[in-house]
Design a protein around this nucleic acid. Sequence first.
DNA 1: TGAGCGTCTGACGACCAGTCAGATCGGCGG
DNA 2: CCGCCGATCTGACTGGTCGTCAGACGCTCA
Lengths: 218, 218
Amino acid sequence: MPSSPAPTAEAVALDGRPLGKRGAATRRRLLDATARLLESDGVRDLRVVDIAREVGTSPATFYQYFRDVEEAVLALTAEVGEELAPVDQLLNRPWTGPSGLATAREMVDAFIRYWDAHRAVLRTRNLAAQEGDPRFRQVRNNSLRPITDHLATTVTESQAEGRVSAEISPMAAAAALVALLERMAAFHGDLESLGITRDDVVETTARIVHQTVTGAAA
Amino acid sequence: MPSSPAPTAEAVALDGRPLGKRGAATRRRLLDATARLLESDGVRDLRVVDIAREVGTSPATFYQYFRDVEEAVLALTAEVGEELAPVDQLLNRPWTGPSGLATAREMVDAFIRYWDAHRAVLRTRNLAAQEGDPRFRQVRNNSLRPITDHLATTVTESQAEGRVSAEISPMAAAAALVALLERMAAFHGDLESLGITRDDVVETTARIVHQTVTGAAA
DNA sequence: TGAGCGTCTGACGACCAGTCAGATCGGCGG
DNA sequence: CCGCCGATCTGACTGGTCGTCAGACGCTCA
């Protein structure tokens, strides 16, 4: 995932001053290096000296663009969060009827691929969110909200048609399914070492999602 | 959750030498301080100096019992992992019939309470596991295996009776449900700030688990 | 070419990790 | 009650990172 082009991230220095061409390029290289090291070493061993060394620059340069490592990671998570949009698109396909299960399958598959592409950044984002950092919470919510809302709406529709129990809170169910998706995406590697294939993961997760959303029995 | 008594953790110094009474007490105080600081500051800001200061001892003392902070946290996760056993017990209640949903509800509720009591340690464990550390993965698996196996068995039974699709892999489904449980437990605070009550979370999660495990429709 | 602004860096004080030799403590035999 | 000995604790030190300057560098345009 190196050298991804900044999607909407506007190059801005610490004091808000807009960045020139060279500065913007340096900032990007620092972000890419951060992503790379996050992947290989994990958050806890992410040192700014290493990021600087990776880019072939002085640590002081890093502090010209980011207050600390956390802020660089935050910028990264904001970028990555936007790349989830295509997955949300898949939810527009029909959920009811015979192709409903296929919709679920494709969505689950896309979601897992998304996680595979950005594993390190996403788990760091979720850790920081769990630790209570409001900025990371916000970024996470912004990224997942379209999917959550989409699922909640579909659950509500199913309830109106009596296929899903009224005891279920659509928002809670949607949050649960998103939680499930994230977790399966995060841990599917683990499961594979336990003899569960990736296809099993996709198929099973898709069926749980489909059943919960539409109420359709096995 | 301070000063929890070591469940089965035998006091052992770094070199394997068994610990005396004083040493064991010091080790315990260090572990409790670690848990406390993990809670308040998060993993990334967990410094040996602080742990030592909290206990009123020298940093050097810490290194007499643990190779580094990570090892102390590992010991903590092993202890906490064992406390999940009571939750597993609840799974012995009947899943089918009218009380099945109640079983699911109680289990979900217990699981969330367990997480609330050990939130910081558990999320640190899961982070380390996701980052690939085999020791943390093992501890996590050991702790969750009873529940996973239990759920998988129940799914298999439901499949034998034709209530659950044969397309579903019991182990994958069980892993998915455990994943769902963990995630809901980890994030239910977040959801509450979104207007979803704790009861909603429990009820909805319980229904998803129940439906997936038994195939019982709404 | 050289002025001027944007970008980069060497060097530094503060702080933490991890180690070691030696001080201290606490229980036991006499 | 004393003195001994292993178990436990600590002060002091080295090495390395953090985060911050003042100033060097280099690109751009007149």
